[in-house]
Design a protein around this nucleic acid. Structure first.
Lengths: 204, 204, 204, 204
DNA sequence: CATGAATGAGCATTCATTCAT
DNA sequence: TATGAATGAATGCTCATTCAT
């Protein structure tokens, strides 16, 4: 049976459209990107587009879910590590890599404009929670090992690590003079310092 | 002629529309907010709307410029201060206040979706630069007084302070469990720590 | 205030669009008539069309409701009559007039194709019921006067009168050789005969 | 070669699709029934559908022609009868049976919406003429036997018999309270009365 | 012969913007 | 100056039909 090949073809084309959509969204924003523009980018007809994604929103959700999947997979890969601080550093290295990618910042901004759509908000908040939980898991392990501060909860720490990564990504997207590569070291250093044990006990 | 009064009326109505637009943008995003919805919110006719703002984009730009103006004014007010660290703290207190405002997060996300529009990008990057310059100015003064680290340039420090404030605002917008009020102290503490003099000299 | 004039203008234009839609539906059927074709017929822009009728279906419903209203009004006018048989004859004279109208048959066929739309089905079945009730009312009065048969209920008689009128209209629509004018007399005669008292008592 | 078997298979499948189409048209109307819906109903692929019927319209025409064929065959069967009135009664019994069938009313309405299509109009008017001619033939024979009225021509009588049958079918389709079974007797009675000899000679 | 992915013309509908009153 | 009816370009989406496998 040639079914496996067909299914592969289908998936390949699906990913091709997703890729074109990602590019187009990054360039024009979600609403600003017409389905016609995506089709042009993907070199397909409108019929084909809607054959794969019945609604325009569906491509956006597919992209987001792909991201969620990647994050999950990445989280799995980390499980083999023994040193919590190493895991956290790997997580931030991933942030640094993303910040250097051409399309990521543009896409993130495009997505920001769609948070009023319930389905998008749902997926993104789930993703946000998952990322925080991933961080919190490793922070908790680090706490057990006495590697990090204990004056605030692991969950709060995770939240703050998100502040650093989000802020870093946003800066990379906003300020063309900001070099994610050059600032990478300072990001890791800031994270380490935030995690460090010797914090004054008066942080409310 | 009662011109002064007319001008006042005109300005008042203009601000009224801007306010309605801000609310509507925060709720539906820029593209998602139809001019009709803004008119409804402002209780005016479409004719009136376009009398004050020939293009829909013009209201958005007006809002942004208003923000720029406020930032400038705020910067002026700080000039009377003598302690640079106090000025920086005041700047972050403003961030904390913004983060607690209902409409700010929604509007910021709405704006993020419009960065592909050149005019918006221009205004926002100008604003971004102005804010960074404001921070850099006070950091430089703090440097002169020997109050802050000198291993990295004042400009880089300013950039990083923006990372903290942007990340903080974004977290407040994204995570409904995140309390800007409760985390305020930690923000100031993190800023102080980042500014502190005793940093390892190996930050590239 | 020029308001009354405005309202009049509005209503006039509304009717103008309804008229154009009726013509277009009669010619191409409901689904076959594009909104563009209706706009062309009405000499208006698509924007104007949707300003008056948010959905294409709304014009169709408006036409149908207009018909219902006319039927009601017609029923009111009959109330002044004293002779039930005269009223019934007037009702059938109206059928005969409709059957001779150019657009009625075409529109009726167009409508037939839309009965799968719940809203249309609802309006039409309400209209059908109203017409039957109108007939039944007069038949009942005729029964009280001993003018018509009593072997079957007034309601059944009304149903059968509808069979005659529907069949007559359909024939006029279907067969171009059928002259509603020439057959008018035979319709009234058939109706009278159906109503006549001397019917065999074995009609189940 | 197994050609005969293949041809049979082909015809069987053709009829299977026709049946599915009839069901789907009756449910959604002609335009409302997508070819995809017909394929689903018939459990075939779109490719197969268009292999048998190059155009969607072709299935509709096939159904109609099938109906015409059945009518012709039915007409042939009647030829063996000797009593014209019996033949006419058989014709109306067929109408009564149709009126009780689930799908007939729905399909008739579906068809009504397609009369603007020339090819459909042609087939249907041919069918209509054939049915009238069938009736007229038997009426003429009845006239020769002195069984029916002669004040109006056999052709006019046939037309009126169509009015009764069409009206009856339409009522069955329109009014869910109308029982074709219960009203069957009254239909035959009405027909007989219409055919009866003792009509006033003034019917123009 | 059977399949279903691909196509693209066509359609209903939205919405920023204009302009007569 | 304020209004809101009118405009029409632009868009998301449907669906009959084709054709390579």
């Amino acid at each position: 049976m040639a079914r496996p090949i067909d299914a592969e073809k289908h998936e390949a084309r699906r990913l091709h459209i997703i890729d074109a959509a990602l590019t187009t969204f990054a360039q024009y924003g979600y609403q600003g990107a017409s389905t016609a523009a995506i089709c042009r980018q993907a070199q397909i007809s409108s019929g084909t587009f809607f054959h794969y994604f019945p609604k325009k929103l569906d491509v956006l959700l597919a992209i987001l879910k792909l991201g969620v999947g990647e994050t999950e997979e990445f989280g799995q890969q980390l499980q083999s590590l023994s040193d919590p601080l190493e895991a956290i550093e790997k997580i931030f290295n991933r942030v640094i890599t993303d910040a250097q990618d051409e399309r990521v910042p543009g896409f993130l901004q495009a997505v920001a404009g769609t948070l009023t759509i319930p389905e998008v908000a749902e997926v993104l908040s789930a993703d946000d929670r998952a990322q925080r939980e991933l961080l919190a898991t490793w922070v908790r392990r680090a706490v057990q090992r006495g590697q990090v501060r204990t004056d605030i909860s692991a969950e709060r720490i995770a939240s703050w690590l998100q502040i650093f990564s989000d802020g870093f990504l946003e800066r990379a997207a906003t300020d063309s003079d900001f070099s994610a590569k050059k600032e990478a070291g300072l990001l890791l250093q800031t994270v380490h310092q935030f995690l460090a044990i010797d914090h004054a006990p008066d942080a409310s």
